[in-house]
């Protein structure tokens, strides 16, 4: 069964991917690039929505198109095909860390993912999805928000320790 977000994503794909694809095509990009740019724009939009940092007077579709344009220009610049950065709405921006490389080696990523799925889900719910500790307590079946909060810090400690260990392993190898 499709959840509410999947339905919203499907609707956004139907309404906006053709527009993004035409824009990417005009900039000499291909379908793969259109898909990537569209997905980046939607992810950034959803993040800003959760952080409640979307500009008040810009409709969702216009915002996503604006972000897609910035992402497209960025990709074109990387390939040396396009350089214009004019007419960018200052209300629309890409998070500074969005195109950052993974903060740890791929092997560590996989290890962290495999070692503590529930921990990762809990941490992502708090830090990425911006759910309140009450929502997390209810969603993850904790008896009280306090126990959810304690578990959150234990999980953070676990992930931090894994990163530290991998860093030491890299240093001595």
């Amino acid at each position: 069964m499709r959840n509410h977000e999947d339905q919203w994503l499907e609707e956004i794909y139907r309404n906006l991917l053709p527009q993004v694809a035409r824009m990417v095509h005009r900039m000499n990009g291909n379908l793969e690039m259109a898909k990537d740019v569209f997905q980046d724009a939607v992810i950034i939009y959803l993040e800003k929505q959760r952080q409640q940092t979307l500009p008040a007077n810009v409709p969702a579709q216009a915002y996503i198109m604006g972000i897609a344009r910035i992402c497209c220009i960025r990709k074109m610049k990387q390939t040396g095909r396009y350089t214009s950065l004019e007419n960018i709405n200052s209300d629309i921006s890409v998070p500074a860390d969005y195109y950052a490389l993974p903060p740890v080696e791929r092997s560590v990523l996989n290890y962290v993912k495999a070692a503590g799925k529930r921990c990762l889900q809990l941490l992502q719910a708090f830090y990425y999805d911006h759910l309140s500790i009450q929502e997390i307590a209810a969603g993850f079946d904790f008896k009280t928000p306090h126990s959810a909060s304690v578990q959150k810090y234990k999980c953070l400690e676990k992930v931090r320790e894994q990163i530290k260990q991998s860093d030491y392993a890299e240093t001595v190898s």
Binding site: Q39, V42, P103, V112, L123, Q124, Y127, R160, I163, D167
Partner: peptide
């Protein structure tokens, strides 16, 4: 290390979101 842990959480969450978007696509 804690800053790195938070960066990692964001990175993984975006990767998961991309995978979800890819399924819809």
């Amino acid at each position: 290390y804690q800053r790195k842990a938070l960066q990692l959480l964001f990175w993984l969450a975006r990767e998961e979101k991309r995978a979800q978007l890819d399924i819809v696509f």
